[in-house]
């Protein structure tokens, strides 16, 4: 079995995907998971992807948002807030 990539690297890749598509695409946890599984093939698995999402959120680089469903986004000022 191939050696797994590091959590930080997966988290960074996820962050780049979110950043590069800001305003065009909203990412759900499953979308990010599918994307990194595709990117890294057998060097990544679902548990690793889950840890990477946790890393993104707990470092404060990303936040969960709710617009109908739950998404993962880069923090920004809320439109509804005055």
């Amino acid at each position: 079995m191939a050696e797994l990539v590091k959590v930080e690297e997966v988290a960074d890749s996820m962050f780049t995907m979110i950043k590069d598509t800001m305003g065009q695409k909203k990412w759900k946890a499953t979308d990010l998971t599918k994307a990194v599984l595709e990117l890294y093939g057998d060097r990544c698995d679902k548990t690793l992807a889950k840890s990477a999402i946790r890393e993104l959120i707990e470092s404060g680089k990303c936040v969960y948002t709710y617009f109908g469903g739950s998404f993962i986004e880069i923090p920004h000022k809320e439109g509804a807030e005055n």
């Binding site: 959120i57 707990e58 404060g60 936040v63 969960y64 948002t65 709710y66 617009f67 739950s70 986004e73 923090p75 920004h76 809320e78 509804a80 807030e81």
Partner: peptide, 14 residues
Amino acid sequence: WKHGGIVGVLGYGG
């Protein structure tokens, strides 16, 4: 009322 989608506590999505 307006809906907000971002507020929460650190680490939690709900």
